[in-house]
Simulated scan of single mutants.
Amino acid sequence: MHTAASHTAALGDAPVHRSRADEVYEQLKRDVSEFKLVPGDRFTETEISERLGVSRTPVRQALFRLQHEGFVEVLFRSGWRVLPFDFDQFEELYDLRMVLETTAAHRLCEDALKVNPAVLDELVAIWLVSPEQRSNDTVQVAQWDEAFHCALVTAAGNAEMARVHRDVTERIRVIRRLDFTKQPRIDATYEEHAKILKAIQRKRGDQAALLLRSHIQTSQAEVRKITLHQVHLARQTGGGTG
């Protein structure tokens, strides 16, 4: 878990080719995704500047960027506010994710020569394991889950598809962390990922695509159940993913 001190240190250690505004932007986006800032929270540029140990100029630049992406809004004479989740937009992003991932599944099965076997081997090593070997760490499983879906699209060999998918992944990360926090959801993720991988190994594109569609739809249904109360609870408990 990051701390305010480690975040500030990270800003100070930023590579020279990255602007301070970029670092502030990424930090604030992490704060939203990790529920250090939740929908409805209000803050000022000065508060952010002091917390991160930077001037107000990069903070303002980062906030305008986040405003453009729909994460925050500026309040007249009273700072900034984290916007409520736009669930209609999340629905659209999940639909786009489904198109990209099912297309990738077909490509992985139809054009084996373009697939890097090492990518699939790494996924198999994580997901095709016995129940006793499964991780119960929700944060770890969340990271692995996101990496699983990104790896499938990347492995399909279309750089533009992978770029769009990464963008979608980043935009749904904040809500995806609330997808599941309980053991049954972790178990289901292991089982569903294993079935998807086995279908791809057997070059069964239609089956792999159907399994992916069902898997994503289940996650999408869980997102629909999320309430603001759960978001506030996540500030104390941390989130999961799907």
Rank of each mutant, 00 (worst) to 15 (best):
H2E: 06
T8C: 07
A9R: 14
D13M: 15
D13T: 05
A14G: 07
R18S: 07
D22P: 03
E23T: 00
V24D: 01
E26T: 12
Q27E: 12
L28S: 02
L28V: 08
E34K: 13
S49C: 10
V54S: 10
R56P: 03
V59R: 09
V59L: 09
Q61F: 13
Q61K: 13
A62E: 03
L63G: 02
Q67H: 13
H68R: 15
E69P: 05
E69F: 13
E73I: 08
L75Y: 07
F76V: 10
G79Q: 12
W80D: 01
R81W: 15
P84Q: 10
F85P: 04
F87C: 01
F90V: 02
L100A: 09
E101R: 10
A105R: 11
R107G: 01
L108T: 00
C109R: 09
D111A: 14
D111H: 10
K114C: 13
N116H: 06
E122L: 13
P131M: 10
P131A: 08
E132Q: 10
E132K: 12
S135F: 15
A142Q: 04
C150Y: 12
N158V: 13
E160V: 10
E160C: 09
V168N: 02
I172V: 04
R176T: 03
R177M: 00
T181S: 09
R185W: 07
D187V: 12
A188M: 08
A194Y: 10
A194E: 00
A194C: 03
I196W: 02
K203P: 02
A208C: 04
L211A: 04
S214P: 00
Q217I: 04
V223N: 06
R224Y: 05
R235W: 08
Q236W: 14
T237W: 07
G238A: 06
G238C: 05
